[in-house]
């Protein structure tokens, strides 16, 4: 069980796979965050109609498994759109769309948790609504949402592994190629558990520590 030689001999191959995991995790975090801020702000300040339409998107992503969104984006979307996506592109698009919905809910909760008086104080200075949201409400909301955002980031890393089902060359998928060659299932999967743990756990703890240091900047 403790013979790690199959991994060591293929270390370069697996390191590339590791970077792919990091790459799609970061991209889906970034795109998901942008989607989350835009959709969350629009739902909070955009009026009933926009809230309903965007709410449909958010609630649908909450109902669909990541696996289904990934498979549909890679296999079904090209048949409708007429062009195909690479597996990495499809993976990032699907994961971002899915994560973005959860980010939007977090942003919405954060924005509505800021005291009403803050908006009044900003408006009383003569700021436009847009400026008030951008400079006063949103920064405070983001600080308050830090724990939830951090947890969503660990989900981005974990969900990247599901992209293996559409053959994205990330860590899980490439490791499965190695298990196919060497039959060292138990050892390789245990190593993978440790690697993902070392990726996610520090992110979660790091966000915790960051939050404790800046929380006072968000309490009004």
């Amino acid at each position: 069980m403790l013979d790690f030689s199959p991994l060591v001999t293929r270390w370069h191959f697996l390191l590339n796979a590791f970077w792919v995991t990091v790459y799609i995790s970061l991209l889906s975090m970034a795109f998901g965050f942008v989607i989350g801020v835009v959709v969350g702000a629009l739902r909070t300040y955009g009026g009933r109609g926009i809230d309903r339409v965007l709410g449909f998107y958010v609630d649908s992503m909450r109902s669909l498994p990541q696996l289904v969104v990934l498979v549909w984006t890679f296999f079904a979307f090209p048949l409708i759109a007429g062009f195909s996506l690479s597996s990495i592109t499809a993976g990032v698009v699907a994961l971002s769309a899915h994560l973005g919905a959860y980010m939007a809910e977090t942003v919405r909760a954060g924005l509505t948790s800021v005291r009403k008086g803050q908006m009044q104080a900003a408006l009383a200075l003569g700021m436009s609504g847009f400026d008030a949201i951008r400079k006063i409400i949103l920064p405070q909301a983001l600080i308050r949402m830090l724990p939830s955002l951090g947890s969503l980031c660990t989900f981005a890393i974990k969900d990247s592994a599901i992209a293996s089902v559409i053959a994205v060359p990330e860590l899980l998928r490439q490791s499965q190629i190695v298990t196919g060659q060497t039959y060292r299932y138990a050892m390789i999967y245990t190593t993978l558990m440790i690697v993902y743990f070392l990726l996610c756990y520090p992110v979660a703890r790091g966000v915790d520590r960051l939050y404790r240091r800046v929380a006072h900047l968000g309490s009004s």
Partner: peptide
């Protein structure tokens, strides 16, 4: 109008960040 009127609130409402 609001630019030319200053307002001070009961709960101060300073911007904490």
């Amino acid at each position: 109008v609001r630019q030319r009127m200053g307002m001070v609130f009961q709960n101060f409402e300073l911007f904490p960040h």
